[in-house]
Lab assay of single mutants.
Amino acid sequence: DLSALRVEEVQNVINAMQKILECPICLELIKEPVSTKCDHIFCKFCMLKLLNQKKGPSQCPLCKNDITKRSLQESTRFSQLVEELLKIICAFQLDTGLEYANSYNFAKKENNSPEHLKDEVSIIQSMGYRNRAKRLLQSEPENPSLQETSLSVQLSNLGTVRTLRTKQRIQPQRTSVYIELGSDSSEDTVNKATYCSVGDQELLQITPQGTRDEISLDSAKKAACEFSETDVTNTEHHQPSNNDLNTTEKRAAERHPEKYQGSSVSNLHVEPCGTNTHASSLQHENSSLLLTKDRMNVEKAEF
């Protein structure tokens, strides 16, 4: 173990290094160091905050020279020094078990990766560091076993998940096959086929009936047209017969005018059967003409 005197000496050296690497504005270890034209180094955030307070150039807090945003430059070497100082402080805390008085939040800088452990060898070769390295080497064999167990647990979990997924996939297939086998029997399929065939026959029977009705309507229309044509021909046949009657009536009127007047009046009210309204109107006109002729003949006879 380190003596108290040596611990104090190391602590004083760390404090001196820390004062050199402090920012003059925030009085902390410089984060993202930036250098000016006057070779003074500050935190990048502190300098941008200072420049944004005034429009135009501002003055350096140490030498009062003008500073602009374009004049600022990043210093990589200074950032490396800060990183190495942080590593020294971490090693000091691990070796002594004491917390550094002016320690900052170094938890963000710590890294437990194997590459980081290899890099620590180049920091300080001390008894405390050696003991700590031995402890780490002793704890390393235990870690692979834990990793193997965790991997086995994960693989077993994956296997159970896969088996569950396969079961879920197989179950719908089985149910679907069961439904297909038990849903419709052979008799049901035959009945469905016969039902479809009967429906098709009914459709075939319905369509000819409609065509037959249309044919019957067409035949009825044709018969009505033929009947009207026969009526017209009958009226045409009746007209010459009426003319013959008129000639006979004229002759009778010349011989017996008194008797014919009474008979002509009675004939006005008689309509021949089986004739249309057109034929009756023609008869009325003929009878009126005959009456006028008879009157003329009677007057001539009187004179």
Score class of each variant (00 low, 15 high):
49 K>E: 04
136 L>F: 12
197 S>R: 02
303 F>L: 15
244 D>N: 07
205 Q>H: 09
100 Y>S: 09
238 H>Y: 08
206 I>N: 01
18 Q>H: 08
31 K>R: 13
241 S>C: 07
261 Q>H: 09
20 I>M: 14
67 I>M: 04
174 R>K: 12
235 T>N: 08
67 I>T: 03
162 R>I: 00
10 V>A: 04
188 D>G: 13
30 I>S: 14
67 I>L: 03
53 Q>L: 12
36 T>P: 09
255 R>S: 14
118 K>I: 09
150 S>I: 04
17 M>L: 05
105 N>D: 13
118 K>R: 08
10 V>L: 00
130 R>S: 15
59 Q>E: 01
51 L>V: 13
98 L>S: 11
76 T>S: 10
151 L>V: 07
84 E>K: 04
39 D>V: 03
210 G>E: 15
103 S>R: 08
257 P>R: 10
169 R>G: 13
295 R>I: 11
301 A>D: 15
90 C>W: 12
220 A>E: 11
303 F>V: 15
114 P>T: 07
135 R>G: 14
22 E>V: 03
184 D>Y: 02
145 S>F: 09
222 K>Q: 07
13 V>A: 10
133 A>S: 02
139 S>G: 13
261 Q>R: 04
62 L>F: 00
74 E>G: 05
180 E>K: 15
226 E>G: 10
186 S>F: 11
78 F>C: 13
263 S>N: 11
44 K>E: 04
258 E>V: 02
165 R>M: 12
158 L>V: 06
162 R>T: 10
166 T>K: 11
290 L>V: 10
149 T>I: 05
147 Q>K: 15
220 A>T: 10
92 F>L: 00
83 E>V: 05
186 S>C: 15
235 T>P: 09
105 N>S: 06
26 C>W: 00
272 P>Q: 05
3 S>P: 08
247 T>N: 04
34 V>I: 08
18 Q>K: 03
136 L>P: 09
90 C>S: 12
143 N>Y: 10
82 V>D: 00
79 S>N: 02
15 N>D: 14
133 A>G: 05
218 D>E: 09
141 P>R: 08
264 S>T: 12
36 T>I: 00
56 G>R: 04
203 L>S: 14
80 Q>P: 07
131 N>H: 15
161 V>A: 08
189 T>N: 07
219 S>Y: 12
78 F>V: 15
138 Q>E: 10
231 D>Y: 01
40 H>N: 01
150 S>N: 13
86 L>W: 08
125 Q>R: 07
68 T>I: 04
216 S>I: 12
262 G>C: 08
91 A>V: 00
151 L>H: 05
126 S>R: 02
3 S>C: 07
54 K>M: 00
162 R>G: 08
84 E>D: 05
200 D>H: 04
55 K>R: 03
22 E>D: 01
62 L>I: 00
282 L>S: 07
81 L>I: 14
32 E>Q: 04
85 L>I: 11
126 S>G: 09
143 N>T: 09
116 H>N: 11
140 E>A: 03
19 K>Q: 06
20 I>V: 01
190 V>I: 12
237 H>Y: 12
146 L>W: 10
169 R>W: 07
157 N>D: 09
14 I>V: 04
233 T>I: 14
262 G>A: 12
201 Q>L: 12
299 E>V: 05
213 D>H: 13
241 S>R: 10
53 Q>K: 03
66 D>Y: 03
216 S>G: 07
184 D>E: 07
5 L>P: 06
42 F>Y: 15
45 F>C: 14
141 P>T: 01
46 C>R: 00
51 L>I: 06
266 S>A: 10
7 V>L: 06
287 S>N: 09
106 F>I: 04
8 E>A: 09
241 S>G: 05
299 E>G: 05
161 V>L: 07
89 I>L: 03
273 C>F: 03
266 S>L: 06
76 T>M: 04
129 Y>D: 06
5 L>F: 05
90 C>R: 07
19 K>I: 01
144 P>A: 14
154 Q>H: 05
73 Q>K: 05
244 D>E: 01
132 R>H: 06
218 D>V: 02
94 L>I: 10
259 K>R: 09
268 L>F: 06
30 I>V: 14
29 L>F: 10
16 A>S: 02
81 L>F: 05
268 L>M: 04
210 G>V: 10
25 I>V: 05
